[in-house]
Design a protein around this nucleic acid. Structure first.
Length: 445
RNA sequence: GGCCUUAUCGUCUAAUGGUUAGGACGGAAGCUUCUCAAGCUUUAAAUCCGGGUUCGACUCCCGGUAGGGUCACCA
């Protein structure tokens, strides 16, 4: 007997931002399908005409594409399938599984007639890949509404029909849907659909342990925000996958493809997990460290300018990559002028050259002149951080490192905080380095 | 409130009856090149409570407690 091909879906409704919880659901669903050689499809659940916004659908598709979740040709919109649902609805009514119900109008906008499902009132037990067996008594659900009218199907009906017709084998979704499951199973049984395997994922929580919501947390829940913050796709995916799942080993850093292999839905945690931007930033940094050179260079150029190229770009990259966790950090550094020394001569008061505010200018002049004389001995083509350090080190150690290195570094960068003077020298090159040292000497003379 | 569900360091988690309860983020201390960053080393920090079962419970059972989800003519 050939195993049935595994098929999962991501079924968001375009009523709001694509948020991190949704992304993680999509990811888990995708990993599960792909690791079994199965299919993953995207279905927009837009049966509610009033709430749907085309821009939200656009954002969802953009996000899924950005994440690289390939859903092939299997894209659906429920709003385009009303006819299908109507057919099933008619059958349900004809067979007595549903009926048109006269309603007492309690609120404005309420209909006098809706279609209700005839609840057989029984106990339903289903197996959840994350939680094991879950039992509900459906009696308390009553005869729930499945359509506003014979031509206006509602969520529960549409989901069941779609999962059936699209041959979804595994429904991977968030825990908030757990209590919807018995309703949907009832409808399944009424239309003669097989029951898919369920996997209800724990929620992503805020630091108050409440469900992460757009209402409460604003843009910080949306994928868009993290893309704008300059997170790498692999960093974001890696972090989100580790939220509520772990490989059972001590490995924490995974590429996207490794995750497809390593992910194991049975190891998904049962309880909700608090979202930590801090850890996500750390994970992202690990991925920046693993970025292929060309990609790293391109991202840096995007932010600091295309005119930094070649060897200079390489040196800048080296300095920058250990100082940022996201490319948003780099953008911030650029905006705050932390990188100014790369582009032009620093401006500063001569007092800044004093190590710990002490010493005298005559001494600084002596040290800097000495430094220049050492640097002059290095050929321009060999002007590396190592060579510069070797040239200066003994002298600095002898007379006091801070007294030499601080003014030298300040002369090069004009910053209280910056990379060390050797890296700076190598980055600036022999000519510029010596010129800036001369400039400092002039200041203190 | 009903129903469902969950419970290990501050946080993410490992340990599926026997470990000094492990790792990571964050914290603290130290080392490394003057400052910063990175790196390295060290360190503090947890089994919700109460009963069982067992020679032995983080682990199994029961009861509390606490948290979360859900109770639409939304999805």
């Amino acid at each position: 007997m050939p195993e049935k091909k595994i098929k999962t879906r991501f079924a968001p409704s375009p009523t709001g931002l694509l948020h991190v919880g949704g992304i993680r659901t999509a990811l888990f669903s995708y990993f599960f399908a792909k690791q079994h050689g199965g299919e993953f499809l995207l279905r927009i659940e837009d049966t509610d005409k009033e709430r749907n916004k085309p821009e939200h659908e656009k954002e969802i598709i953009f996000g899924i594409d950005w994440l690289g979740l390939d859903y092939g040709p299997t894209f659906f919109r429920q709003s385009e399938r009303t006819e299908v649902y109507n057919g099933y609805l008619k059958k349900l009514v004809d067979s007595g599984n549903a009926y048109i119900s006269k309603e007492e109008i309690k609120e404005e906008g309420q209909r006098a007639e809706v279609v209700r499902f005839k609840n057989p009132n029984k106990s339903i037990t289903f197996t959840d890949l994350v939680r094991g067996d879950v039992t509900f008594d459906t009696t308390e659900l009553g005869d729930f509404v499945i359509a506003k009218s014979m031509t206006e199907p509602l969520y529960h009906l549409a989901v069941v029909i779609d999962d059936y017709e699209m041959e979804i084998t595994h429904v991977v979704r968030a825990e908030e849907h757990l209590s919807n499951t018995p309703r949907q199973i009832l409808i399944q049984e009424a239309i003669g659909a097989p029951r898919p395997v369920y996997a209800h994922l724990p929620l992503i929580l805020d630091d108050q342990r409440a469900k992460l919501s757009k209402r409460k947390h604003g843009e910080k829940v949306s994928l868009k925000y993290y893309i704008e913050q300059g997170f790498l796709r692999d960093g974001l995916v890696n972090y989100l996958t580790l939220l509520g799942w772990n490989p059972g080993t001590e490995q924490e850093i995974f590429s996207f493809d490794e995750l497809i292999q390593a992910f194991d839905i049975s190891k998904v945690q049962k309880s909700g997990a608090i979202f930590s931007e801090e850890k996500m930033r750390w994970i992202n940094k690990q991925h920046i460290g693993r970025l292929p050179k060309e990609e790293l260079y391109a991202r840096i150029q995007e932010i600091i300018g295309q005119d930094i190229t070649g060897e200079k770009l390489e040196k800048v990259a080296e300095i920058v990559k250990e100082r940022i966790q996201t490319f948003g950090d780099l953008k911030l550094m650029k905006e705050q002028g932390e990188l100014d020394y790369i582009f032009h001569e620093p401006e500063y008061q001569k007092e800044s050259l004093l190590f710990k505010g002490k010493g005298d200018f005559a001494l600084i002049k002596t040290h800097l002149e000495k430094a220049i004389s050492f640097l002059e001995t290095i050929p321009e083509s060999e002007f590396s951080a190592e060579k510069v350090k070797a040239a200066i080190w003994d002298y600095a150690s002898e007379v006091g490192r801070g007294d030499v290195l601080w003014p030298m570094r300040f002369a090069l960068s004009g910053k209280e905080k910056s990379p060390d003077p050797f890296a700076l020298s190598a980055l600036l090159g022999k000519k510029t380095t010596i010129a800036r040292l001369h400039m400092a000497i002039e200041k203190v003379s």
